[in-house]
Amino acid sequence: MILFDFEHESSPSAEAAVARLNEVSEETRFLAGGTDLIPNMRIGITKPERLISLTSIPYAPPTLDAKGWLEIDALTKLSEIEHSKLVGDAAPMLAASAHSVAGNQIRQVATLGGNLCQETRCLYLNQKHDFQFVEPCFKRGGDCCYPFPKNKKNVCWSVYMSDIAPVLMALNAEVSVLGAGGEVRLPIAALFTGDGLRPHTLNPGELIRRIHIPPAPSHFGWGYHKSTVRGGLEFATALMAVALEVKAGGLVCSDARIAIGAVNEGPVRLDKTEAAMRGLELNPANLRMLADQASQEVNPLPHHGFSKPYLRDNIRVHLKRTLSLAVERAGKGLKENRS
């Protein structure tokens, strides 16, 4: 049971939901799968007075548009993405990341848009504040960051844990956001502020409507790794997504994108390492050098008991393997290989 009352209504369409949210005066949230929002309401991180449910809005299955871009409705369930043949063929890294989210029961109801809009996490924040952890931190309107008491005012080191956002960043995806003024299309990176207190740039009354993924070029390779302790039903310790292209007939990198997730307040691109990769032959010695460089470029927040040096080491080791896998796939020229 949630320990406070709230109103609940269903919306027949995304446009109606946005119009309704802009019309009501009380604090209102959209409800899709609810696998992040409902537990957060249970422990009191958020206390909306009204929920507008999006679950009865019909949505189309993933499609390819005229230019070959993969279009996925934000209300698509993660289990549908995981099992979609089209997604598996056109963007296997996205299917792999959807497959790695939480557990089966959660993937049955959790949506793609909801996964991107999830709240940041921190061991202190994600506690019910009724017994031991009673003092509110900055994120709950308090005046101290209790896990990191030396933090300056309103600096929140909570971590953004989406498994899918780094993949979409590596794939150069775009996102359509529906607001009161209509729909705008943005690069996925524009969704994130990098601020733990307010991790998304979306305003109240704005809604992610669909995701667009460009077609993979030839000689494209991808690698995805989610470091976890148990291997299932878990948020990531660190998460890496690699998308690269090699020049025909060799292993010289012509373009690369590396996104790291679950170690900062938002997903991060490794610009310097990407720049160093371009024009470089991706042999094992160079991959090791790139992974070393990447682990120094990323600046992980200590989270959930993992220290900064450990997270750097984790990224160094697993990014090397992820890069090798991506190079192997690119070398084969396969676009459709799945892990």
Binding site: G34, I38, N104, Q105, V109
Partner: peptide, 13 residues
Amino acid sequence: GKPVLSCITLAVE
């Protein structure tokens, strides 16, 4: 027919 977690599913849904 789909497995879901009834502790985080609103009854009104």
